[in-house]
Design a protein around this nucleic acid. Structure first.
Length: 854
RNA sequence: GCCCGAGUGGCGGAAUGGUAGACGCAGGGGAUUCAAAAUCCCCCGCCGCAAGGCGUGCGAGUUCGAGUCUCGCCUCGGGCACCA
């Protein structure tokens, strides 16, 4: 540090000061003020992993810009923060390092909060909660009981991935090559009784309501649409010929009933009741089915597995032709979860069925051929788009020439009128299994009683709190082996009973936290008055990775909360606007060790393309999401220490549009710091100027200022923070070069501080104070652009000849078309191009351009 | 395989159908300095000495005028997937 007398931009000195001043002035406490419009801005709350990363900084800075901007626009702003605190990492830590998951979690929260505070976010911390707080999950249990009573929760058997060593259920992504990710043990498919939310009851509503979410990214709506997966088809029974008792009929579902006369076999899932029945009787079937299940644990294996089947010997009658009998196979590619778990195969028009029929030498009768074509043997399935018109050679409903779509509808009505089957709308969306055989989650508040069965806990007995005296030194769920926690009295008959030891999926916790923020200390899940004032979330901001599950579950929960009286009806779509921000990326620096294996280096250990310590040249791999394993991470804490929070905030907003990834570069971070230091020095210089009298340069500066107000406002309103920052750079350059009076420059500087405040609030306060601004800029009204200052007296118009720019003219802004045309025709370039000839046409677009056609 | 989205300087990116490349980074030149850092000023799409010409992935089209609209291709990115 040079010992010069000039004060320098010193973020460490100013940032803490202003944060304390905001706190002293109680700037960010959300106030329920019926006289003012409210604005609820929410960023997806973090999992307390232990450290914040740049992705958090970007996410919360975007939310903070919106929150501070809306506050300046006169809204009563709610901008809360909490912690998505249940989940497996805490249990894993307890298993590996000892201690209790709660201890690990609350420690992490304290550390992360300590890292977030220096960012200067305008968060109402008085509303903070963690989902593992018993006050929160106790209310979640109340919600669960209400949903149970409303018929939105039920129990059924479901197949799960069971790790026999860890004695736990595994999620699909925890099963690697058919083995448990931790234990390495062969995973079994086991059937357990599990709790489910009846989300499928809302399939059609959740689908239809997507159309109304105008302020959601189209991409997210599309992903949800595909996930819900509506399809229209025919469901009908095949009558069996020689099936075991109880299987007189096999119900199938098809989206292509028009291909019914192309059926060559019927196939059922290995998990179909018929397969189950035969499995018990025949070792051949049992072996085949067991084989299918062995493969059936990972998606990858399923994908690679060839289509295999086993002929059961059972035959069914074709509903349209009783003479025709079809064989019933068990096939490994039929899913029990979709449709009825049974299909008819039409190999001519489905590639999977074609492969299957080819392998087992089954007939392949064509139903339709291309328009104008003749029937001939097929080398592969013929699957034209449903919208394409084809010629039906084995049709039974509708015209001979028709599209697949029309033929499907015709086939459904035909089958309905003959009483063969019925038209059915199916959804891919399945009910949401919420049971987890885990400790660190919200206990499911029910009791198992020998005489009464499954009994909901009484509300007055809530919360069902997790016991703290547990150990993780043996596999399985500690709740299962706790000596006393399980024991309780049946809420119905009072007899000794046992608690449910399953806990809830952590997606449940995050499906209603946004509603809880409106009344975080209420002794019911929500408070009607508070929810009515604050809901909906006006702007929700988070990562695209939550496009489907979290957002779909939240939409379901909002509906369920309305049905159980916890939210008004207008809140069934809780997020008015959604913004999905891009990631923060960084280059990867790699060298190779003696055996050629990649070795990664942290950015701070690399300089000028070389590893600092060894001088070895690194290979630079293009930007990718920051990840610990690739070591391409920069720690926000380090950046704040070095440059201050304002630099971190400004940088993550600049350069790239918010929805796209932004690449973190040390050059960019340094340049940001330099810019802020320049603004700070400019402020210092301007503050020292005498006021002086207004000169001609003053009006230019004021015009530029109003232009900047208009442009920055528009950019923030449009979520284009990178453009807002570009406008701020431009205005700063204009101001620093202006030779206007001190009075004008001080006005401009104050306005610049206001416009910068949402992005870089600390330096903005400092400048505001230096320039004699009243109070805190955090509490000042947003500046207004004067429309009169946005129009200028003269305009410069480009002159085109045949659409190519050749010159420009300067004319009064209000000049009539004829005058502009005259001026354009006398411009040098035009005179030269015309060479005395008469132009064919002259197009004058007032205020924009003149095009002369020759 | 199906469904989306995107291709603009060395880089990140601007641009209601109307001056392509705002703003930033990197780079070049200069000032200041004993020197360096820091700071300030200027230049910076490509070809060309210049005049000028060419330029928004490729090819057509609509238009007085296309990065922007239409059609066809290419490349990259994302989502979904034995879904009957």
């Amino acid at each position: 540090m040079p010992a010069d007398t000039q004060p320098r931009y010193d973020p460490q000195a100013i940032e803490k000061t202003w944060q304390d001043r905001w706190e002293a002035a109680d700037c960010f406490t959300a106030r329920h003020d019926p006289a003012r419009p409210k604005y609820y801005v929410l960023e997806m709350f973090p999992y307390p992993s232990g450290r914040i990363h740049m992705g958090h900084v970007r996410n919360y800075t975007m939310g903070d810009v919106v929150a501070r901007y809306k506050a300046a626009r006169g809204f009563s702003v709610l901008h809360p923060m909490g912690w998505d605190a249940f989940g497996m990492p805490a249990e894993n830590a307890a298993m590996q390092e000892g201690g209790h998951p709660a201890e690990w979690t609350y420690n992490n929260i304290a550390v992360m909060k300590g890292q977030m505070k220096p960012l200067g976010l305008s968060i109402d911390w008085s509303r903070e909660f963690a989902t593992c707080d018993v006050e929160y999950y106790g209310q979640q249990q109340a919600l669960f009981l209400d949903m149970l009573e409303a018929g939105l929760v039920y129990r059924k058997n479901a197949v799960v991935n069971w790790d026999p060593v860890d004695m736990t259920v595994l999620a699909n992504e925890q099963v690697i090559d058919g083995k448990g990710w931790r234990s390495g043990a062969e995973v079994e498919r086991r059937e357990l009784t599990q709790w489910f939310f009846r989300i499928s009851e809302y399939s059609s509503d959740l689908l239809a309501a997507l159309d109304g979410l105008d302020n959601w990214p189209e991409k997210v709506r599309l992903m949800q649409r595909n996930w819900i997966g509506q399809s229209r088809g025919l469901q009908f029974p095949f009558t069996t010929v020689n099936a075991p008792e109880g299987f007189a009929q096999i119900e199938v579902y098809t989206t292509r009933p028009d291909t019914l006369l192309g059926a060559s076999f019927v196939a059922v899932s290995p998990d179909h009741p018929l397969a189950r029945h035969l499995e018990a009787e025949s070792t051949e079937v049992a072996e085949f089915v067991a084989d299918c299940r062995r493969i059936g644990t990972t998606e990858e294996a399923l994908e690679k597995a060839e289509k295999r089947g086993l002929d059961t010997g059972i035959r069914v009658r074709h509903p349209l032709d009783p003479e025709c009998e079809l064989p019933v196979w068990i096939a490994n590619f039929i899913l029990m979860d979709y449709g009825t778990g049974a299909i008819f195969g039409c190999p001519a028009h489905d590639q999977r069925d074609f492969d299957f029929a080819t392998r087992y030498i089954l007939p392949i009768p064509a139903v339709f051929v291309a328009e104008g074509a003749e029937e001939e043997p097929l080398a592969e399935a013929y699957v034209p788009p449903k919208t394409q018109r084809v010629r039906y050679v084995r049709g039974f409903a509708g015209a001979e020439l028709q599209t697949g779509e029309d033929a499907v509808e015709a086939a459904i009505s035909d089958c309905e009128s003959r009483g063969i089957g019925r038209g059915v709308t199916q959804y891919r969306l399945r009910d949401w299994g919420l049971s987890r055989q885990r400790y660190w989650g919200c206990p499911i508040p029910v009791v198992h009683c020998e005489s009464c069965g499954v009994v909901p806990e009484k509300k007055e007995n809530l919360p069902v709190a997790l016991p703290m005296d547990v150990s993780f030194d043996q596999p399985g769920n500690p709740l299962d082996r706790h000596p006393t926690w399980r024991d309780c009295a049946c809420p119905k008959c009072g007899a000794p009973a046992r608690r449910e030891t399953d806990t809830m999926d952590t997606f449940v916790d995050s499906s209603w936290y946004f509603a809880r923020f409106t009344a975080p200390r209420a002794n019911t899940p929500t408070d009607a008055g508070e929810a009515d004032y604050w809901m909906n979330v006006d702007q929700y901001i988070g990562g695209i990775e939550h496009a489907i599950l979290h957002l779909l579950y939240s939409r379901f929960f909002a509906r369920a909360m309305h049905r159980t009286g916890h939210l008004p009806e207008r809140c069934i779509e809780p997020f008015d606007a959604l913004f999905t921000q891009g990631m923060v990326t960084h280059e990867i620096y790699m060298t190779r060790d003696a055996r050629g294996r990649p070795v990664y280096h942290l950015p701070e250990d690399v300089a000028d393309g070389k590893v600092k310590a060894t001088g070895e040249a690194v290979q630079i791999i293009p930007s990718a999401k920051m990840s610990k394993s690739k070591k391409n991470v920069v720690d926000p804490v380090d950046i704040i220490d070095r440059f201050g929070a304002d630099t971190a905030r400004w940088f993550v907003l600049s350069d790239s549009p918010p929805e796209r990834d932004v690449e973190w570069t040390s050059a960019g971070a340094e340049a940001t710091y330099k810019h802020l230091a320049r603004v700070w020095a400019l402020c210092d210089r301007i503050a020292a100027m005498p006021d002086g009298t207004a000169g001609p340069a003053d009006s230019d500066l004021m015009r530029a200022m109003h232009r900047a107000i208009a442009d920055v406002t528009k950019a923030i309103d449009g979520f284009a923070f990178n453009k807002a920052i570009a406008e701020l750079y431009a205005f700063t350059n204009t101001l620093s070069r202006s030779d206007s009076s001190g009075t004008a420059q001080k006005t401009a500087m104050r306005t610049l501080a206001q416009l910068m405040a949402p992005m870089v609030p600390h330096i903005a306060e400092d400048i505001w104070a230096h320039q004699g601004g009243k109070g805190l800029v955090a509490q000042a009204d947003w500046p207004q652009a004067d429309p009169a200052m946005l129009v200028s007296d003269t305009v410069t118009l480009p002159i085109q000849i045949n659409g190519k720019r050749k010159g420009e003219i300067s004319v009064p802004a209000d000049a009539p078309k004829e005058a502009v045309e005259k001026a354009a025709l006398s411009a040098d370039a035009v005179v030269k191009a015309l060479a005395g000839a008469v132009p064919k046409k002259v197009i004058v677009v007032p205020g924009r351009i003149v095009n002369v056609v020759v």
